[in-house]
Design a protein around this nucleic acid. Structure first.
Length: 154
DNA sequence: GCCAACGTTGGC
DNA sequence: GCCAACGTTGGC
């Protein structure tokens, strides 16, 4: 089993939205590196840290689980969507997504400055300078440390 | 709102 | 295939 951190702007889609919906297709990823991780690496059952980006403060809000893989992102075909991709076709879809299912919301939101301060989290991708990738692999140790900081049972 | 970091595009 | 220009992300 692998561990991931997935970023979402809470004004667009927050952990509370996921809580209400229970599951969602992770659409709108338009970065090849992130897509390739979802397409090639993610497996059903993988654990996800739900990260709020562009928030005050940004940080990890809760947990989710990968519940389906290899789904075609429908927004690439929707000309009214900001994620529309004219180069994608039904025969050759370009953007692949996964579905994630809500697991829990942290009792203690873990803000980015706290992640930076934690010695055990040295090397965590999201605390590196200029770390823009919206789907990031996380080591099991880092995952467990962040769960503890958030007040979730590992 | 600023801007550093980084990805993508397109001319050559 | 290089790289300058441009666009986007996302912390601050």
């Amino acid at each position: 089993m692998q561990y991931w951190l997935m970023k979402s702007e809470p004004e667009t889609y927050s952990i509370d939205d996921l809580h209400l919906e229970q599951k969602t297709g992770w659409d709108g990823i338009r970065n090849y590196q992130a897509r390739n991780l979802m397409r090639d690496q993610m497996q059903v059952g993988d654990q996800v840290l739900f990260y709020h980006s562009n928030a005050k403060p940004p940080g990890v809000a809760g947990l989710a689980v990968v519940s389906q893989t290899g789904l075609v992102d429908p927004s690439q075909f929707d000309s009214s969507s900001k994620y529309f991709d004219p180069k994608a076709s039904l025969e050759a879809p370009r953007w692949i997504m996964v579905e994630i299912t809500y697991k829990s919301s942290f009792s203690h939101f873990v803000p980015l400055p706290d992640l930076r301060q934690q010695k055990e989290l040295e090397g965590l991708m999201v605390i590196q300078k200029g770390s823009r990738l919206s789907v990031q692999p996380v080591s099991q140790q880092h995952f467990e440390t962040i769960c503890q900081m958030g007040g979730a049972r590992v």
